[in-house]
Each structure stands twice: as C-alpha cells, then as structure tokens.
Design a protein around this nucleic acid. Structure first.
Lengths: 115, 115
DNA sequence: TCCAATATATAGATTCCCGATATAAGGAGG
DNA sequence: CCTCCTTATATCGGGAATCTATATATTGGA
C-alpha cells in the first residue's frame, strides 16, 4: 500500500537527521538506510533528499565533506553538528507531542466519559 | 510550543473525518471540537477546513445539509457517508502504519533483537 | 554495446495549509 | 444608535514541502 505522501510531510528532516545521529552517511546511503530501517515503508527520493541536505547545511545542522569513492562519483558524506543534534532533540519532542495529540483524537478525544 | 505546521500535513482529513464518525457537525464546531479533543494542540483554520470539506464532498465522503441557525448565518452540517467511513478506516490504517515506521526509525531501525 | 545501478544535483509541477479578506447576523458596551 | 466581538461560512494568494523528470558521471553485467 502506498502511504499518503502528504503524511510524510514535515517528518523527513527528522528522519534524515536521526539517521545521521549514529554516524556520518552519504546521500544515497541514507535513502537505502531509511528504506531498510522502516521495513520498506519509506522510499525517499533523491530529488527530495539532496535539496533537503543543502538546506540543513545552510542552517548549520550538518557539515559535508568529500569521501573516498570506491566507484562512480565521489561520495559526499554528511555529519550532524552539535546544533543539528539539538534540533533533532526538538524535532523528536515535537513529533511525540504531535502523534500523542492525533492518537488522542483518534481514541475519542481528551477527557473522560465519551464525547 | 507551536507545532511544525508541516507535521500536521496530510493528517487533517483523517482528523476531520474522525470527528464526523460520532455524529454530524458543522464547520465551526469541528474547529472547536478538534481543539478540545487535542488538548489545544490543533488549531484548525477556517481557511483550511472549508476547502477541505468541499473536497470531501466532491469525493463522496461527506454530504452536507442546511441546519437550524440559532443565530447568525445558517449552519451547514456535514455527514460522513458509508464511503467516507471506509476511507476513514483506510486513513487510520495508513496513519498507524506510518507512525509505526517512523517510531521504528527513531528507535534505531528494523532489525533483529528487541526494537 | 547498451542498460542497470550507483551517486549527486537542479528545475518545474503539484499539493497542502495558512493568512488575509469578505459576507452576514446577533449581542454587549459606550 | 453605532461599533466591536463572536459566531459562521467562504475564497484567494502566498509560501513551504515533496515528487517527477532530467542531467551528469562511472562501473559492471547481459
């Protein structure tokens, strides 16, 4: 089943930064990692990822450096900065608050006796 | 804290249809209900809701009818159709699958041991 | 040789939500 | 009486985010 693309909206930076928390990765690797770690649920597109990475770089959340290229084009690795880790913690908190609120609505709303 | 607006993307139709599952509501009421049931987390805007309702109507997920107006403009009530209930079940399933996948990535990915 | 996969990158189109604005009626306060 | 706020619905334009399509470059398999 194809997930509503729009559902993923907004959480992609969170997911990408989370991937980088454990160690530096290059773009293509993030796409594969995300697919693997989500049980094939997320198929992040290259056209989505690279502009996003450039944006994170501008904000100072990640830094980039050229790495060894075993084959093909040189690999561009990304590293999560301290500011990026801070932003990641904030985004995780926002995500948790958001899903809690949605879950509450789906379960029938805040409060007590039914509706 | 202001939630990243983009996080809400895509889940608004789900939330609105969920509100209508329990009974017919008019637009303004949905805004207040959603705010209440989410502990003031979601502040759905009129400029978001009404075009959305028209869209749901076009898809056959809701039907609309004029109701008694205690004051001011006549109230336009919305009713969730059988097709709408079906769509709601699908959207709820998609939401659950999506949050499960995000949670899995945030906890460190699919794979082996506990997770 | 041609195609697929790896690897990065940009531009255009689309979708989605919000802010601003308009309409309309009733009640409160000056 | 008149103005402002609240209720209530509605539309439009802007901005943000993602996808599709495309471009470039190299390696390995059919």
């Amino acid at each position: 089943m194809e997930l509503d693309k729009s559902l993923i909206s907004g959480s992609i930076p969170l997911l990408v930064m989370k991937l980088l928390e454990a160690g530096d990765l290059y773009g293509y690797q993030m796409i594969e990692e995300l697919r693997r770690r989500s049980d094939d649920t997320f198929h992040l597109k290259a056209g989505t990822l690279y502009p996003l990475l450039h944006g994170l770089e501008e904000k100072g959340f990640v830094t980039a450096y050229e790495g060894e290229a075993a084959a093909g084009k040189p690999r561009r690795y990304y590293h999560l900065t301290e500011r990026g880790r801070e932003a990641l913690r904030e985004k995780e908190a926002a995500w948790n608050e958001y899903t809690r609120a949605v879950g509450q609505v789906l379960r029938g709303g805040a409060c007590c006796a039914g509706a």
